[in-house]
Design a protein around this nucleic acid. Structure first.
Lengths: 148, 148
DNA sequence: AAATTGTTTAGAATCATTCTAAATGTATTG
DNA sequence: CAATACATTTAGAATGATTCTAAACAATTT
């Protein structure tokens, strides 16, 4: 019962996200939206999503994954971010927040905005306004041999 | 006189940087190192450097530019950073610092580390240590029509 | 200066991403 | 609900940044 209701709700959410982007509802978009928007926040690449869908027997071309991710991003449903030169990551959390990056795992974890206090000690250059502040914190396992 | 001395000093600095990376001194590397290390700090791509050198009639292949930038980076003489998915930027300033990005110009400007105070309100995850903190601040021209 | 080792190069290879144009699906209208 | 218009998907080609390859060349060592 509860299970089915959640399933339904997740689908509803996915559908409303697609429509809020002014996009037609298609099976491919629904499959993507369900994986992106109904569940915990994710940091994922187009290729990762594509192989996830393939594994789940959803027929979708890589071009459509790229296409859809870009349109979701333009509609403000995703945020694109860059950590290495050869692929784009998409973040399902579009609220202002920052990132921990676990170097050994190559994985990202959100840092809620209120876990970090960023204070400008001098004001930004004349004639400019701050549009966004992105903080990227690299973490590694504590090195216990690191006795100074 | 003074001009020639500066020229010499710049060359000396470039040479010592190459040698500090354990690399042989070659004309190509010297040309690159002079442009990278003797002058104001830069944020530049391999292609940009390559065409700059071409313009200055320095014969060097793009492969060598990439090669050299990567080796300088591994030696800690440069820092690589990522802002869009299709090219790598190299920063000649390897001191800890942050970046302003001028959206209209597509250009970067350093934010000295002591212009920004970053306070962790909760500690990083158990068992991890913070290796680096990178802040990226997007700026745009003030929009005077922005009356709320 | 011969031999060893490192560097540069042109061009090919790679890989993420975008483009193209044809086929298919969805919506709209009478 | 058929006909038309319009949007989407797709396979495969194209693109563009970067890396690889292997041959020519330069620097260093003996």
């Amino acid at each position: 019962m509860k299970y089915n209701k959640n399933r339904k709700n997740r689908e509803k959410l996915a559908i409303s996200q697609i429509q809020s982007a002014g996009m037609r509802l298609t099976p491919q978009r629904l499959a993507l939206a369900k994986r992106l928007f109904s569940g915990p926040d994710r940091h994922i690449t187009a290729e990762e999503l594509h192989s996830e869908l393939k594994y789940a027997d959803v027929r979708i071309s890589l071009a459509t994954v790229y296409n859809t991710l870009n349109r979701f991003t333009n509609a403000g449903l995703l945020r694109e971010f860059f950590v290495d030169s050869n692929q784009s990551y998409f973040d399902t959390n579009t609220e202002p927040h920052h990132h921990f990056f676990y170097e050994e795992l190559g994985k990202f974890v959100d840092v809620p905005i209120n876990n970090l206090n960023i204070e400008f000690l001098t004001s930004p250059p004349k004639g400019t306004q701050v549009d966004s502040v992105e903080v990227f914190i690299k973490l590694s396992k504590v090195d216990s041999s690191n006795k100074k």
